[in-house]
């Protein structure tokens, strides 16, 4: 099944809810958040995309001509034919929320936790949405563009042990 056939199938099922774009060899479809789960489910069940190769997010706060704040992409792979498809969706403040794809691909577990940890995007239906890389007591979302690279002084906030004390 080629990309064109997949797009035809998707159009038959969902009409014009999504847009497509292309850059080099990357084929992308951009789906609004309310349809993302249905589209991904359809892609997995009907089009053979059995592997979620990658799930990541970005903050488009300072991006030229960006309309939405948080973007999340799903790179799907069909392991029999080897073709890739990138599905993108967007979420917005104040409560960026997306449906979790954990029921479809178990591999999404940690990747969604990481996006939550770094950007604060909440994945509805995730079984265990906790911080994964940052400490639990950390409050900010460090990869957001409004968080400074050197942090807000959290890295100096520890007791000092001197020789006589230890």
């Amino acid at each position: 099944m080629t990309h064109e056939e997949i797009l035809v199938k998707l159009r038959q099922k969902f009409g014009e809810v999504f847009t497509t774009s292309e850059f080099r060899d990357n084929r992308r479809i951009i789906v609004p958040a309310e349809h993302i789960y249905a589209v991904l489910e359809f892609l997995k069940e009907q089009c053979g995309f059995d592997m979620l190769a990658e799930l990541g997010g970005a903050d488009y706060l300072q991006y030229p001509n960006a309309q939405d704040r948080y973007g999340v992409w799903y790179v799907l792979v069909n392991t029999t034919t080897g073709i890739r498809l990138i599905v993108k969706t967007f979420a917005n403040d104040p409560e960026p929320t997306l449906p979790s794809v954990f029921p479809l691909w178990k591999g999404a577990d940690w990747m969604e936790r990481e996006v939550y940890d770094m950007y604060g995007v909440i994945f509805d239906g995730h079984p265990d949405l906790r911080r994964i890389l940052m400490p639990d007591e950390f409050t900010a979302f460090p990869l957001r563009k409004d968080y400074p690279m050197r942090g807000r002084g959290e890295r100096h906030n520890f007791p000092v042990i001197t020789r006589p004390e230890s």
Binding site: A53, E54, G56, A58, D59, Q62, Y63, P64, V75, M111
Partner: peptide, 26 residues
């Protein structure tokens, strides 16, 4: 894999890694 978002300048806007170790440890 790397997912690079470019905004036209010499610095990437976002550099996302697809780290195999992360996914394998899961």
């Amino acid at each position: 894999g790397y997912y690079v978002i470019a905004d036209g300048s010499g610095v990437a806007y976002r550099t996302r890694t697809r780290p195999p170790s992360f996914i394998h440890f899961a």
